[in-house]
Structures are given as C-alpha cells and as structure tokens.
C-alpha cells in the first residue's frame, strides 16, 4: 500500500484519497498519543498542546492544498505540520531536542517550521501567525505565484488585534489567503460563550467583507468541501475566506490543565463525535475501502510513529555550540 506524500482532492473521490485522509488523521492522533506518553514518562520536556479530537480540520484543509501552498500554524500545531506533509522523525526529534530536529532543538513543539512543505512555522504567540499568512499571500500576489496561504488559528486568537488588522488587509488587498479558525470552544479556560458576544465566529468575516463559513470540524469531508471552495476563490483572485471549523480538544490545554472550566460529561460527549470513526463510517458506507484495509491504515500510521520515535530517540542530542553564530543568517557577499 503506498500513499503519496501529498495528495489533493475529495477524501471520498477514490480509495487513494480515502486512504490518504485516514492515514493522516491517524498519524496526527498517534503522534499526539506518543508525545503524551513521552511526557508522561519524563522523556520529553517543556510543555505540549495536543490536538487529539481535532484531526479532521488540518487533514481536510491540506487535501485542498498543493505542496507550494503555505501555512502558518499555532502552539497546537503538530496536526497542521503533519497534514502539510512534514517528516515525522524530524518532528519527533525536535521535540526531543535533537540535532536532526526541524529546528535543531532550538524551537521545540511550538516552533516547528518546514520550508519544503510550505510550513512557515508554528507559533508560541496566539494570533502571531495570522498577519504572517496574509504577508505570504501578499508575496504570492505580487510575484504572481498562484499559491494560497492558510493561517490556522484558534477561537481564542480571534480576540487578538492581530486577527482584525490582518483580516482587513487580506480583504482590501483581495489576497489569496484562508483564515482557518479551529473553534474548539475554549481558549485555555475561557469558553467562546464568555469570550465572544456572537454565536457564530465566522460572522466576524462580515465586518471585513470576507465570506465566513462554519462547518463541522470533526467531519473531514465537510472541511474539505469548504476548503476546496475557499482555495478556488483565492486562486481566482476573489480574495480571502474565513472558515470556522467547530471541533473540540479532548485533552487539557497543556500539561498543567486541571480541566476545572468544563465538565467530564462534555468531554465524553465530544469523544463520541470522534472525527476518525466519523470518516470511517462514511468510507464503509460508500464502499470505498473495506474494514481490513482500514485496519491496515491504522497499523501503518502506528508503525510510522513508532519508527519516528525510535529514530528520534537514537539521534544525536543538540549541543550548545555555535548558538551565537546562529542568531543571524550570514550576509552573502
């Protein structure tokens, strides 16, 4: 069974597409589970923000993107990075502070970037990536590259000034950018009910002249369809789209979260809306893959993560040499 590194198209349009969508969602899930396990065993340090439960969003979005299209990501960014096609070993190695890690051990979980797959970087600053994606789209327009830029951000980020200024620039310059809001109902402990005076976050687009779409963020098909339309608009020079995906994070905000601001029942309810079985039932119903093939995909993802963890664990640790020289890129003669 082969799966292309990046495939475009509707997740139900062929067995390959279904396989791809499923493999990527599983990869994200298993990557996050491995990270949680490594933290739990004291083998990883710092903090972590897991995206378990939110796998359909980045997977659906990236199925609508070409390799050259760009993304900016967030503190909860492992899923975006994987969906855009990043190398799992180099990601895991970064989290383990290894030399072969994407940032040479200097960035860690919150700062993975991958120029090869158009990932301009995860971000430790809430909202920090939104204007950057708008700038990438501006460059695309000025250079007539035909590429699209996507900014992933959370519901919480929509209350940063950065979102508002960036949205307006994107709109007035009709830039090929997609503002992709993962509304998981909480920004750390503040719920969208307390942090917003509107129900539908996509309505924020209206004030900027940007179409706002709300979709089920746990349905990779629905996400893909909304994204595909937004990408088409962007490539046609019609400007930005704001997509709000309604989803949920199963785990605490970070390691130190005691989940005091939400109920166990709510968490359980959302676990029943798991994006992976949700897609599997669609795939089975359409007769695109059978159960055996599906099990093989899950196993493949698990094996890939185990391999990444093993490779990363064996890699050489980053050493504190040359840090001063690493601050600036050398000026070329």
């Amino acid at each position: 069974m082969t799966v292309e590194r990046l495939l475009m198209g509707h997740p139900l349009s062929s067995p390959d597409h279904a396989r791809h969508a499923l493999l990527y969602m599983y990869r994200i899930r298993k990557f996050e589970e491995a990270v949680e396990d490594l933290f739990g065993r004291g083998m990883m340090h710092g903090t972590m923000h897991l995206s378990i439960g939110q796998e359909a969003g980045p997977t659906g979005m990236c199925l609508a993107l070409k390799l050259e299209d760009q993304i900016t990501s967030t503190h909860r960014g492992h899923g975006h990075c994987i969906a855009k096609g990043a190398d799992l070993t180099r990601m895991m190695a970064e989290l383990l502070g290894k030399e072969i890690g994407y940032c040479g051990g200097r960035g860690g979980s919150m700062h993975i970037a991958d120029a090869e797959t158009g990932n301009l970087g995860a971000n430790g600053v809430v909202g920090g990536g939104i204007p950057i994606a708008v700038g990438a789209a501006l460059a695309s327009k000025l250079q007539k590259k035909g590429t699209v830029a996507v900014s992933f951000f959370g519901d919480g980020a929509m209350n940063e000034g950065a979102f508002h200024e960036a949205a307006n620039l994107a709109a007035i310059w009709k830039l090929p950018v997609i503002l992709f809001c993962e509304n998981n109902k909480y920004g750390m402990s503040s719920s969208t009910e307390t942090a917003f005076a509107i129900d539908r976050l996509a309505d924020r687009g209206l004030g900027y002249g940007i179409p706002g779409v709300t979709v089920d963020g746990n349905d990779v098909v629905a996400v893909y369809e909304a994204c595909e339309a937004a990408v088409a608009r962007a490539r046609n020079g019609e400007g930005p789209t704001l997509i709000e995906t309604v989803t949920y994070r199963w785990k605490g905000h970070s390691r130190s979260d005691k989940n005091l601001y939400r109920t166990k029942e709510e968490i359980e309810e959302w676990k029943h809306l798991d994006p992976i079985p949700n897609f599997i039932s669609k795939v089975l119903a359409a007769g695109i893959l059978n159960q055996e093939e599906i099990d093989a995909i899950a196993k493949m993802a698990q094996d890939q993560i185990i391999e990444a963890v093993n490779n990363a664990a064996q890699a050489k640790s980053a050493v504190p040499d040359g840090l001063l020289e690493a601050v600036f890129k050398a000026v070329s003669a």
């Binding site: 502070g97 200097r106 601050v327």
Partner: peptide, 16 residues
C-alpha cells in the same frame, strides 16, 4: 544571558 533568543532543548537553554 547570551545575546540569543532562549532555545528549547534543556542543554541549550542552560547554556543561554
């Protein structure tokens, strides 16, 4: 501190 952004890996962070 060194004139660098604070790095992630513990062995680098300590050096900073």
């Amino acid at each position: 501190g060194m004139n660098i952004p604070i790095p992630y890996a513990p062995q680098l962070e300590k050096a900073a």
